[in-house]
């Protein structure tokens, strides 16, 4: 044990540092380039900007109702994530812990959604949304996020429910706990790593989704950040500095939220490990 760590530790660090550099550098480049002019970007793409100003950001923020987009994105993403995790926990628990003969089939039906491009159904979907009166409503996006996030969430949660030792549950049941109680106070607390993963993944895809808002939302006041920023790309196709500022603005809220929340998730991960 000691021997192996002697030679492997430095080797480990070389790997993680190299990969971390590759992971971070492009993002760093995006931030950096947002402070440069187009000419600077092309003449010296790797260099530092000659002067740091927030002017590009100020003009960009002035051009679009960024705070409005931000609020819409937050409402859509948070609501979607809460609902998808609640609904899928219930469903995954049912699929993983009970041996009804149709469970495998239900599981598979849920997985079907991952196997076909949902874009195919965009015309029937649009008609459905129109009939439900959800065009230009944030609910159209929330429902789409829940529905499209369900397959992956069910897959992950079912997998982890299956790894939970059955004895824990049985002990609780002997104390007279019902299904909901078992799920909520016994199993879910143990599933924090998996729940953390599921929350992050769903949050990211809800936050970054641009196809459905593009189709279902036409009012500026209901747009989310990616779509609102997308329109900027068209306006500044030659102004690379502004473009990078736009890209940064579109990505920054997600990163900040992640930094705030990541501690929570990572603690969840470690807590899971101790158990």
């Amino acid at each position: 044990m000691k021997n192996s760590s002697m030679w492997s530790k430095p080797f480990y660090y070389v790997i993680v540092f190299a990969v971390a550099t590759i992971s971070l550098y492009p993002i760093f480049l995006m931030f950096l380039s947002s402070f440069k002019t187009s000419a600077e970007i092309f003449k010296d793409p790797l260099g530092l900007p000659t002067k740091f100003t927030l002017d590009t950001y100020r003009t960009l923020m002035g051009k679009v109702p960024f705070d409005q987009y931000f609020m819409n994105s937050v409402i859509v993403s948070v609501t979607s994530v809460v609902l998808v995790v609640v609904f899928c926990s219930l469903a995954a628990y049912y699929i993983a812990r009970f041996k009804f003969s149709w469970n495998n089939a239900i599981f598979f039906i849920f997985l079907l959604g991952m196997m076909i491009p949902i874009k195919l159904g965009i015309v029937p979907l649009f008609i459905l949304m129109r009939d439900l009166g959800l065009i230009n409503s944030l609910w159209s996006l929330i429902f789409m996020n829940i529905a499209t996030g369900t397959p992956l969430t069910i897959l992950i949660l079912t997998g982890f429910f299956k790894t939970m030792p059955i004895e824990l549950e049985e002990a609780a049941r002997m104390d007279g706990a019902g299904n909901l109680r078992v799920l909520w106070s016994v199993l879910l607390p143990l599933m924090r790593p998996a729940l953390g993963t599921v929350v992050i993944v769903n949050f990211i895809s809800a936050w970054n989704d641009f196809f459905f808002p593009l189709i279902f939302i036409t009012e500026k006041a209901k747009m989310t950040i990616p779509v609102g920023m997308l329109s900027l790309f068209g306006e500044h196709s030659a102004d690379w500095g502004s473009l990078f500022a736009g890209l940064t603005l579109a990505s920054l809220p997600m990163m900040i939220l992640f930094f705030i929340a990541s501690k929570q998730f990572m603690e969840g991960l470690t807590a899971g490990a101790v158990k």
Partner: peptide, 24 residues
Amino acid sequence: TIHLFPIPALIIYGLFVLYPILAA
């Protein structure tokens, strides 16, 4: 009551993913 557990997910998923894909 346990059979109610998968219902919410099935409804939303069925309506907004399965139905449009099958129709298409």
